[in-house]
């Protein structure tokens, strides 16, 4: 579906991404992990054709540079890490913008499936009730879901997500990742996402790719990559051990909760 061949992204002062090759097939959710500055977001930007690169990105076995922007957008949707809207659109307007690649005519007014696609995306993201709300009045989680709904309204087959759980609390993280999982399983689709939280990578990723100083140092099923020595080298610590210790503490917390002590909690 989407393939990177010997991808290198050069920035001033060196390569942010160096000679990276991998492919993503339908039904796969690839998690890009790595420490800060490893080149994860840069790699995603190159895949999205937003950063100049050397090497090749193939979409359906055809060079991505040869795709027209609108045709590429019909196949690949992107959810950025940060958003900087200049003006306050309504949620419905924001999501409708995802239909741009499907519109026709001089005034781009023809899009036979537009209304239905926007309704579906709003429903899926749980935003139907909020569709007339000003986007500036949304919480961080609602806004992130609105941008995701925009990408879903685009009806892509590949979804690129740059730290989608950024700034979201646990509830929103769970909602967002389960929503993306449902969307992926609903057709011949694949997802590539940058994540910092390795628990999310383990829980939702079908494959995990580890980037270390721009190089792809591990690529395989989540359990294999997260147990690899490469992960320890990249982070400079025994990540699996630390996560296991944390999980043990959580088990204790859950056990305490089942005994029903309830001390320290107050009603709001």
């Amino acid at each position: 579906m989407l393939e990177a061949k010997r991808l290198t992204v050069a920035y001033e002062g060196g390569d942010a991404v160096r000679d990276v090759s991998f492919s993503a097939e339908a039904g796969e959710w690839l998690m890009l992990i790595g420490p800060n500055g490893a080149g994860k977001s840069t790699l995603l930007a190159a895949l999205a054709q937003c950063a100049p690169y050397q090497g090749t990105v193939l979409l359906d076995a055809r060079d991505a540079r040869r795709w027209r922007p609108r045709a590429f957008a019909r196949a690949v949707g992107v959810l950025a890490q940060t958003h900087a809207a200049g003006y306050a659109f309504t949620v419905e307007e924001l999501v409708s913008m995802g239909r741009y690649a499907h519109t026709h005519g001089f005034f781009r007014s023809q899009d036979p499936n537009g209304r239905e696609a926007v309704r579906r995306a709003l429903d899926m993201a749980g935003l139907w009730e909020l569709r007339l709300r000003n986007m500036r009045t949304l919480s961080g989680g609602e806004l992130q879901r609105a941008y995701l709904a925009q990408a879903l309204a685009q009806e892509p087959r590949v979804l690129l997500l740059d730290e989608p759980a950024n700034h979201l609390d646990l509830v929103y993280q769970k909602q967002l990742f389960e929503l993306i999982g449902r969307w992926m399983r609903d057709g011949d689709r694949c997802v590539i996402s940058v994540v910092h939280d390795l628990s999310l990578a383990l829980r939702y990723g079908t494959r995990v790719l580890l980037l270390d100083r721009g190089c792809l140092t591990a690529d395989g099923p989540a359990r294999d990559t997260l147990a690899s020595d490469a992960l320890r080298r990249a982070y400079g610590m025994d990540v699996a051990d630390w996560m296991a210790q944390t999980a043990e503490r959580w088990r204790e917390v859950a056990g305490g909760k089942s005994h029903g002590s309830g001390q320290g909690s107050r009603a709001c």
Binding site: C50, R70, G77, A85, G86
Partner: peptide, 12 residues
């Protein structure tokens, strides 16, 4: 209005 990268992602 959502930024140049956002516009590019939409197919502009």
């Amino acid at each position: 209005s959502l930024g140049e990268d956002a516009a590019r992602h939409m197919g502009v």
